[in-house]
């Protein structure tokens, strides 16, 4: 009797163990099903093309007639003035625009974080507003604003800041400035929102204490705000860097890369190589790998810089 009871109970334990294993297995197997589409999708639409682009970068030829040429494409980069121009321009956008925008966004967020300020909501919404426009739409608007007989020239003339209209889009330096102003207009508010939300978590008493110790608002900015917001500044600068390295829509629609190649970006050169001229997919893929390398490089540098003085 007791024996049989023992055996049933052990069978029961065995059975429930079995059941729970099966349940565990089923749960896990279901878990994999949940992520399946995403994993396959990212594999097909990101990693597989990345691999194909790498293979392509060692091939050359027009259209579909491609053959392996080893490192020829990579060598070609160094002697390609258009590529050098695109690379230089992209660097100029990156090194001038990203810091200017981030500092501006930080200043706005610190000012707008002050609860005693009037019309705070209005200013915040106004500065954020450019983010709702599509890149193409605002690019076309900027193209017209900065035209020879555009509103910017009309305004500057009527204020007597210039004596004759500036040819913004036909001068190599002014055209770059126009692009930089345009990107700054579009993205400063976007970055500001990140800083504003991060500022909510900064302990207010720190500012009070600093004030009592006689720290000026500029000192408070550099010694409290910037260090406290460091992780989010790092995040936004990496995002902006990745974005700027890939800049395309604005260039295409404001200057079309001109005058000459004065505003051409790397992404636009890749587009031209593949779809505007006789397609040279191999070389275009090589140029695209330059962006990949730059993205990785800049992200590492920014992590390093931010991590250094911990």
């Amino acid at each position: 009797m007791s024996n049989s009871m023992e055996s049933t109970s052990s069978a029961y334990v065995e059975k429930s163990k079995n059941k729970s294993t099966r349940r565990w297995f089923k749960k896990n197997y279901i878990g994999w099903l949940f992520i399946l589409i995403a994993v396959i999708g990212i594999g097909i639409f990101y990693f597989y093309p990345m691999l194909r682009a790498l293979l392509l970068s060692f091939q050359s030829g027009m259209g579909a007639n491609l053959e392996y040429v080893g490192l020829d494409n990579y060598m070609r980069l160094f002697g390609d003035p258009t590529f050098i121009a695109a690379l230089t321009n992209t660097f100029i956008y990156l090194l001038v625009q990203v810091p200017v925008m981030i500092i501006l966004a930080l200043v706005f967020s610190v000012i707008l974080n002050d609860a005693t300020l009037k019309f705070r909501g209005f200013f915040r919404t106004a500065i954020f507003l450019p983010c709702v426009t599509s890149l193409v739409a605002y690019a076309v608007i900027f193209k017209y604003l900065f035209g020879v007989d555009g509103l910017i020239n009309q305004g500057l003339l009527s204020l007597s800041l210039i004596s004759e209209p500036l040819n913004w889009l036909a001068d190599p330096v002014l055209a770059k400035i126009t692009i930089i102003l345009a990107i700054t207009w579009r993205w400063t508010g976007y970055n500001m929102i990140f800083y504003l939300s991060a500022l909510q978590n900064v302990d207010k008493s720190m500012y009070e204490a600093a004030k009592i110790d006689g720290a000026s608002s500029i000192q408070r900015f550099f010694y409290i705000t910037v260090p406290m917001l460091k992780p989010i500044i790092l995040f936004t600068s990496i995002m902006s860097t990745i974005g700027t390295l890939q800049i395309f829509d604005e260039i295409m629609n404001i200057t079309n890369g001109g005058p000459g190649n004065a505003t051409l970006s790397i992404s636009m050169y890749i587009y031209n190589l593949s779809f505007k001229y006789t397609p040279d997919f191999g070389y275009a893929a090589t140029v695209s790998y330059v962006i990949v390398i730059l993205v990785v490089l800049f992200s590492l540098i920014q992590f390093k810089v931010a991590g250094d003085d911990k």
Partner: peptide, 8 residues
């Protein structure tokens, strides 16, 4: 970067 996978 999208430009890198656009061609493939």
């Amino acid at each position: 970067p999208f430009a890198a996978i656009m061609i493939p």
